[in-house]
Amino acid sequence: MPQQILANNLTKYFEDFRAVSSVSFEVNEGEIYGLLGPNGAGKTTTLRMLSGILKPNQGFVKITNFDIQEQKINALKNLGFLTGDTGLYERLNAEEMIRYFGELSEVEPQVLENRINELISTFEISEFRKKLCGKLSTGQKQRVSLARTLIHNPQVIILDEPTTGLDIIASELILKFIQKVKSQGKAIIFSTHNLSEVERLCDRIGIIHKGEMKMQGTLPEILDKTGTESLSNAFLNLVGDETYEI
């Protein structure tokens, strides 16, 4: 099971504040890794380091064996990154948005056209494919964002709260898709506040709190180590009784 994502000893400071502290984990081919943590735990910072947007003060990230800082283009050609902070261009239509990112990833024109059509049908975008992104609903936007993330058929996919704000039908479409790409051998990092989604999808789970990796392992391992019977109890157990949102 070759390793696709390697986060090694990641540490990030913002001025004097240590946002992430010595976080390490790896994700293999065909594996979904769930990253959990309360708001402000350092999840977004970790994901940003994984995608090369932030540079760690210590440690390194490898995506399909390419160092994200040193071999950025090769690493990013194998990475699809979707977070709440990756918006759409309001004055491009859905199809143009997807095509633009395919072109930026230097996908061959013929392959790109097929891929666009495939994703448009997978995420049921065809009825609004010519509509400007600025005029799409939240659910439609999220489906276009996903297609944009996956246009270059990356081996590694990072999805930060992909179902937030979506209705149950749209969420289901996305979750089914994640399961499908997992079966194709992709390595996926999935971050969400919805613990039932984690239980349903993730092969392994990492729980971050105050910038540190509190625990990682499979669901049974975590339940076993925390001596709890559900993920939500394990989660509460690990992050303490501080104020947080789930």
């Binding site: 950025k72 977070t83 990756t86 759409l88 990112f101 930026l104 270059h152």
Partner: peptide, 14 residues
């Protein structure tokens, strides 16, 4: 403001 700067930074570009 429109959060598209991070989108372009996540593409394989220098």
């Amino acid at each position: 403001e429109r959060k598209t700067l991070q989108t372009i930074y996540s593409a394989p570009l220098l």
